[in-house]
């Protein structure tokens, strides 16, 4: 049967990993390629690079990071952050990315998702949704620009629309939970999982292994994205998978 995926996410800025530099000590401040290799050896199911480089003139740096990673790591690689047009996607795929995730550009112009899916296929068109709970209500709103700008768009309606436009997967981040280490927003994740037929990746808030278990079992996520619990070596990916396996979740060991 299809196994549940564990996906470490690396925030990359100017070609360096900006989260989780502690464990690499002085030898290296955080080379994304080296960290990707480490996660590869630990048995990660995919890798995600989130390019948070601010200036557009540094876009070539992430291309180079992707190229070097793809030479050494033979597993699926998703790249997100700052993707604005079809040419951005083409260059990342040519460099060795397998999927690209589109966030703000999809909100600005939803047809972009359709164009990307028609040109490159749904399988490499991930739509990233940053969601925030509307206070006092049982619904969530889509945010852009790293969770700063509200859009007024309902998350569930947006996810369904993006599926219709050809997105092959949803990367769903709870802005309320992100950084809290209190666990995923299970209610949000379950609502999106039930609303669409494409896979949903849960993101934002994981602090321990039980949170991964809940993301898969209670929320029904196809994959769980995590950053800090792996970066700071609180757990290895292998430990996470052993834990999930012991609790009856199908994972690739």
């Amino acid at each position: 049967m299809l196994t549940k995926r564990i996906i470490p996410c690396l925030d990359v800025k100017g070609g360096r990993v900006v989260k989780g530099v502690q464990f690499l000590e002085l030898r290296d401040a955080g080379d994304p390629v080296e960290i990707a290799e480490m996660y590869d050896q630990q048995g990660a199911d995919e890798l995600t690079f989130l390019d948070i480089t601010a200036s557009s003139d540094q876009r070539d740096i992430i291309i180079d990071v992707v190229r070097r990673t793809a030479e050494r790591v033979f597993m699926p690689l998703t790249v997100g952050g700052g993707i604005r047009n079809v040419d951005d996607i083409r260059r990342l795929l040519n460099a060795g990315a397998d999927k690209t995730s589109i966030n703000t550009a999809a909100v600005n112009r939803p047809e972009f998702v359709k164009e990307a899916a028609e040109r490159f296929g749904s399988q490499c068109t991930v739509v990233a949704i940053d969601a925030r709970r509307v206070p006092g209500e049982h619904r969530w709103e889509v945010y852009t620009h790293g969770g700063r700008n509200p859009t007024g768009i309902d998350v569930i309606e947006w996810a369904i629309r993006m599926e219709g436009y050809g997105s092959g997967e949803i990367l769903l981040t709870s802005m309320d939970c992100d950084g809290t280490k209190d666990g995923y927003d299970l209610e949000l994740t379950r609502a999106v999982v039930d609303a669409v037929s494409i896979p949903v990746i849960a993101s934002g808030g994981v602090g321990n292994l039980e949170h991964l278990f809940d993301g898969f079992t209670k929320a029904g996520a196809s994959a769980c994205l995590a950053a800090s619990i792996f970066h700071y070596r609180e757990y290895t990916i292998g430990q996470a998978k052993e834990y999930l396996h012991d609790k009856g979740v199908a994972v690739r060991l």
């Binding site: 299809l2 196994t3 995926r5 199911d45 092959g168 997967e169 494409i198 196809s222 994959a223």
Partner: peptide, 20 residues
């Protein structure tokens, strides 16, 4: 096939991930 369920969960299409 659309609308298939496996172990109570809707089967997602595309199949994306590791299988045996």
């Amino acid at each position: 096939p659309d609308k298939m369920t496996v172990a109570g969960e809707k089967l997602k299409v595309p199949q994306m991930g590791w299988n045996q």
